[in-house]
Structures are given as structure tokens and as C-alpha cells.
Design a protein around this nucleic acid. Structure first.
Lengths: 206, 206
DNA sequence: CCCATGATGACACTGAGTTTCATTTGAGTG
DNA sequence: CACTCAAATGAAACTCAGTGTCATCATGGG
């Protein structure tokens, strides 16, 4: 029990099992494959019951993409804290850069492993897409609130979409190179992606 | 057997069961709810076996969104047939307009019912997202091929994303009004959505 | 008419996710 | 420290989507 004592013991225990499950899942899924690993094996490894697993995660897929989940939940927190001034797209970018820079150091490896895993299991890909879709919805809600716009405003949808896509592409390229260059390399790629967005609209055939 | 005789009988039969399944599914799911309807009930209604169902559709979710699937598969066909000249975004828009205009007349009602259904079942929402994601991938592949670009080119990702988002938002609004105004109303909304895209990038806080 | 091939149905099986309920364990109180 | 309440856990039975196998049936081509 070498954990941070600032929170009640109960909560610390819950967090510990959560981490243990996510770590074991990343290991098992990477070794044996996502489909080939049963939930039973996972919970035996961590020595908890299936009930406990489903109280910590809503689905088998969820435990595999903890790193992705952490990123976006931190992002939404950042976004809500910041006040929006000037170009909204720039705001979305800066919040993302700030969030990426602030993630705990061991996040890098877990994220690389996660993205690798996603490439091997269609079910995981689908789950990530679904999860990001929820994030976009939250982003739109947050922006609509701050800007006094309707949550159906097409512009907000486009902007949320762009931010997530910029991340997705940057992350893919970064992972493809083993996360070489660390957090800074990722951040650099992210800046490049955002800069490339306006040009996209004017892409034309020769 | 009042079907189009141009194809072999075997194929016609397969198509008929497929249609029957999709129609019954839309009816049952709308009445009882997606989760509350078991696959068993569905296949009993249509009088086929579970095996047959899974040869026609890859998942329970798939049979519920046939109208969505038809749209995008027609779109990809259109896109591949057209030659790309000038602005790519305009090309994506025009192909979408052309596709929407060419869908069989009974598509409207089925699509409205489908989108309604999706709003009631999280599993369906996730499945639609996943499906569209596959469509975007195909769009990107098609464009990369025609333009001689890399399939990882960020601009292609952005453009595919924008086209799908424009559709999604237009469709949502159209469905919200019961598909009033028919195909023409949908097409008008779609044009508006595409026109609103460039402005999005310059959205700023007051 | 016959044969090869592809579609179907029946059935058994796996594994994810839910539900229920009894048991344990941490938190607050006197 | 003892007691109590609430929350967390575990055990086990259950539902249902999805897979795999194999025997049977229908179709299309010769």
C-alpha cells in the first residue's frame, strides 16, 4: 500500500485494482491477442471477480484503452477550465498541447502499446471510435456553453472533428515510429497537423 | 417471387431474405426496442435460421442500419466512377448530392426510421460510427489513388471527415423534422452544410 | 437427368455482460 | 474500542450474441 494517502482508503483500493486491471490487460492482450484472451483469464491474473471488473470498466474493450480514455478526460477538464478567446480552433489546439504536456510520464509507453493493440483488433478500433465520438459530443457541449451557441451548430461539429482528427493522425505517426522523440516529438507533430488543416480545404486535383 | 429477373434465382432469393430481415428488424426494433428484441424473435418473424441471418449480416446492429449502409456504399461507387477535377471538397460534395438524388424512392422512410432508432440504442450509435469510419477509410483510399497522394496524408483525412460530418449533421436536422420536404429538403440542407464548412475555421469568441 | 456447388437449417458451444444475494470491509459515531 | 451503516466485493446462475460443424436441400450447368 505504497499509495498517495490524500484520499480515503476505499478510493485508493479501487484505483489500485483499476490500474492493476489496465496494466495486466495491456500485457495479456499484447501477448495473446485481444480476442484470444478471455475476461476470466484477466480477472484471475489480477485476482478479482468478474463483478469487480464490470464495476471498474463498462466493457472488455474499455480496459484496453485506458491511456486513450485518460488523455481525453484530461483534455475535457483542461478545456472547461480555460477561457475561450480568439480563434476557437487555436483554443482547441492549445488545450490539447497543454494536456499532452501535462500527462504523467508513464503515459507514453502505455499509449503506444494501446494504439498498437487497437491496430490488431477490429473490436478495439470500433470502441475507440465510439469513445472519441463521446468526447466530441462533450467538446461541442462545452464550446456551445462558452460561446453561447447551439449544440447543433455545424461549425462546432466541424471544429471538434478537426481537433480529434489532428490528434489521431499525429498519434498514429508518432506510434508508428515507436514514440521516438518522446512527448516533445508528439507535441511537434500535433502542431504540424493543426497547421495543415486550413490548407486541406483548398486541396485540388491537378 | 415478383422480383427483377435479371439476376440468377439464387441471388434474388438472397436479396429477398436480406430485405425481409431489414424490414422486419426496423419494425420490431422500433416497436419493442433494439435491446429488448432478441435475434431469435427476428429470425422467427422472417422464418429463417440464425445461420442465415449471420450470412446476410455481420451483427445484430448491422441489420438495423441497412439504409445507412446502402447510402454509403452507393456513395463510394459514385466517387470511384467520377473523375476528380478542381477542389476536392467540392467533388466530395457533388458526389454526395448525386448519390442522395439517385437513391430508390423508399429509402427516405427507411432512413428516417433508422436514424430515429439509432438515437434510442447506444449500441447502434457505436455501430454507425464504426461503419462510417470504414467509409472514411475507403474514401481516403479512393482519393489517394486518384490524386497520387499517400493514404496517410492529413488533408485527405480532414476532407473525408468533413464530408461525413456534413452529411451527419444535415441528416440529423432533416430527420428531426420527420424528413419533411423529402429528398429535395435533405439535398438543400446538405448544400448549406458544405457551404458552412470554410467559415468554421474562422469561428472566434467575441 | 445428374452432378458439383452453394445456400440453408439444426445443434452444440464459447464467452461477454447482467442480475441477485450473501459476505466482507472501510468509515463514522458514541 | 465496539457498533452500525454503507459501500465494495465475490459467487453463481442466467441471457443472448456470435461461431463452428455437418447433414440436407436447391440451383445452375452440362
Amino acid at each position: 500500500m505504497t499509495d498517495d494517502r490524500s484520499r480515503p482508503l476505499r478510493e485508493r483500493k479501487k484505483l489500485r485494482t483499476r490500474r492493476a486491471l489496465a496494466d495486466a490487460a495491456l500485457r495479456l492482450f499484447t501477448d495473446k491477442g485481444f480476442d484470444a484472451t478471455t475476461l476470466e483469464e484477466l480477472v484471475e491474473e489480477v485476482e478479482v471477480s468478474k463483478s469487480t471488473f464490470f464495476r471498474a470498466f463498462p466493457a472488455k474493450e474499455a480496459v484496453a484503452i485506458e491511456a486513450e480514455t485518460q488523455l481525453w478526460s484530461a483534455y475535457l477538464t483542461t478545456l472547461e477550465r480555460r477561457e475561450v478567446t480568439g480563434l476557437v480552433l487555436a483554443e482547441l489546439r492549445d488545450a490539447l498541447l497543454e494536456t499532452a504536456a501535462a500527462l504523467e510520464p508513464d503515459w507514453d509507453d502505455r499509449y503506444v502499446a494501446t494504439r498498437r493493440l487497437v491496430l490488431t483488433a477490429p473490436a478495439l478500433l470500433a470502441y475507440v471510435e465510439h469513445h472519441r465520438s463521446g468526447v466530441k459530443k462533450d467538446m461541442i457541449g462545452c464550446l456551445a456553453d462558452k460561446l453561447g451557441l447551439d449544440i447543433d451548430d455545424l461549425r462546432l461539429h466541424v471544429l471538434a472533428e478537426l481537433a480529434v482528427t489532428a490528434w489521431s493522425v499525429s498519434g498514429r505517426d508518432w506510434v508508428r515510429e515507436d514514440g521516438r522523440g518522446g512527448r516533445q516529438a508528439l507535441i511537434r507533430r500535433l502542431k504540424d497537423s493543426f497547421e495543415a488543416i486550413p490548407a486541406s480545404l483548398h486541396l485540388a486535383a491537378p
